[in-house]
Computed example of a mutant assay.
Amino acid sequence: MLLSSRTLYDHSFNVCFMSLVLGRSLGLAVERRRSLGRGALLHDLGMMRAPAEIRDSVGELSPEELAQVRKHPTWGRQTLSMTPNFPYDALNIVLDHHERADGTGCPNGLSKKNIPYMARIVKVVDTYDAMTSPRPHRPALSTTQAASPLLERSGSDLDREMTIEFLRLPSQAIR
């Protein structure tokens, strides 16, 4: 799964940085980019509530373990909602970054434009970073190798507009 807190830290930092680059490319105003950065950096905060043996697992997860992992967006939002003045857009990113364009995501089964705009940005970047980071069960894909599967997932899993704009970014901005 996510392996260690160090891996989670690196993933969160990568997703934050690349989301901010994409947000700027999409023309988000500075204040919205601040919210985007906060939400992207903390998008997986709820994973800290998942049992360590699940977080640190290197193999396939059981259906019960997967059900625990799928709770992390809700847990993260619950935790951050207790933070005074935490941006609403950032809370939505944390809650909705695993929603899918086709409506089969979690936690609420939102689809297409019902998924908050900035959560759609983070979803693309989160997916890309997972593909291009090594995992115990597979090596990391290169930027070039990740482009095709990322595009294939656009429209069903990922927002198509966000995916295309992300892939237009200069390679040094996305790794």
Rank of each mutant, 00 (worst) to 15 (best):
L141I: 01
S156Q: 06
E53W: 13
A140R: 13
K71P: 00
A101R: 06
S154H: 02
T74I: 11
Y128S: 11
D10F: 01
D102Q: 07
L169A: 07
L20R: 14
E53L: 10
L36W: 02
Q145A: 15
C106N: 06
G76M: 03
A173R: 11
V58L: 07
T74C: 14
S133T: 14
R6S: 12
R6W: 10
S154W: 04
G109V: 01
S81F: 02
V122H: 03
H98L: 05
P139Q: 09
K71R: 02
S25L: 09
A101M: 12
F166P: 08
K71S: 02
K123G: 12
P73L: 07
D159P: 00
R49L: 13
I121G: 13
T143M: 07
P134S: 03
D102S: 08
S111Y: 03
L45T: 14
L91G: 08
T83C: 10
L151F: 05
R55M: 09
E99V: 12
Y128N: 07
D159C: 08
R175H: 15
R34W: 10
Q172K: 04
L66N: 13
T83N: 07
D10Y: 00
M82V: 06
R32H: 15
D159K: 02
A173Q: 14
G59Q: 13
R153F: 11
E99W: 06
E60Y: 04
R24S: 09
P139T: 05
G76I: 06
L61F: 12
S57E: 13
R135H: 12
G155E: 08
R33A: 02
V15H: 08
Y88K: 12
E65Q: 14
A29P: 15
N108A: 04
R100I: 00
R55E: 12
V15N: 10
A101V: 11
D126P: 13
D89G: 13
R34Q: 15
R153Y: 10
A173P: 05
L41S: 02
R24G: 13
D157Y: 07
V21I: 08
G23Y: 01
D159G: 01
F166W: 02
K113A: 11
L42V: 12
L2Q: 00
P51C: 04
S142M: 08
T132R: 03
